[in-house]
């Protein structure tokens, strides 16, 4: 799935060498994937741009903590940005005062995907067709909502074991779709 492994290695090396020009390459290579996931979470273009920029600053500043032996650069940067986006919607909910139920109605996990969200990747629809609605709900809450499995169980009023089974089954389906 990584288009050219060498290219990623090279990029990692250049970022380690603090080569600022490499960040342009980084943007060209990862912005669509990062922006797509961030948009899915924050749902607002302006805010998504903010989060992406913040993510790039964080990636640059904490690049020393990226350990290539533990995984792809893609996975690491995606998690950095995804977490920032999740923090963003949580602080947004905090601001509007629903602190008692901080995870309650995050748009990102309530709706399958908003009408304005049109991922260009044709694979998404086919992919979600392979997931049952129950599985998709769980995986979306975990991945885009930042819930733990117990939080999902509590939120959906399901036994924890059921949530774990659904999560595992969903992720298994996804991992078999690797092109």
């Amino acid at each position: 799935m990584p288009p050219v492994p060498d290219a990623e290695d090279q990029l990692v090396q250049r970022l380690r060498d603090r080569d600022e020009a490499a960040m342009t390459l980084f943007y060209d290579r990862y912005s669509a994937a990062l922006y797509g996931v961030i948009m899915r979470i924050v749902q607002k273009e302006e805010e998504a741009e903010d989060v992406l920029q913040e993510g790039m600053i964080k990636i640059w500043n904490s690049f020393a903590s990226y350990d290539a032996s533990k995984g792809r650069l893609f996975t690491w940067v995606m998690n950095v940005c995804r977490n920032l986006a999740i923090d963003r919607i949580r602080s947004r909910q905090y601001r509007v005062g629903t602190r008692t139920q901080p995870l309650e109605d995050s748009a990102a996990v309530r709706e399958p995907a908003s009408l304005t969200f049109r991922p260009e990747h044709i694979g998404l629809q086919e992919m979600t067709k392979k997931l049952s609605p129950d599985q998709q709900q769980v995986v979306d809450m975990l991945y885009f909502g930042g819930y733990t499995q117990s939080e999902v169980a509590e939120e959906l009023d399901l036994p924890l074991g059921t949530v774990k089974t659904r999560a595992r089954a969903a992720i298994k389906v996804l991992s078999k779709l690797i092109r």
């Binding site: 799935m1 912005s31 992406l52 996975t75 260009e120 990747h121 998404l124 996804l174 991992s175």
Partner: peptide, 19 residues
């Protein structure tokens, strides 16, 4: 590894070209 690549695939499927 399978879990991580499954999640990565899901993320990539959401790719959206920034404006």
């Amino acid at each position: 590894n399978a879990i991580i690549s499954g999640l990565d695939t899901y993320a990539e499927a959401h790719a959206l070209t920034p404006p």
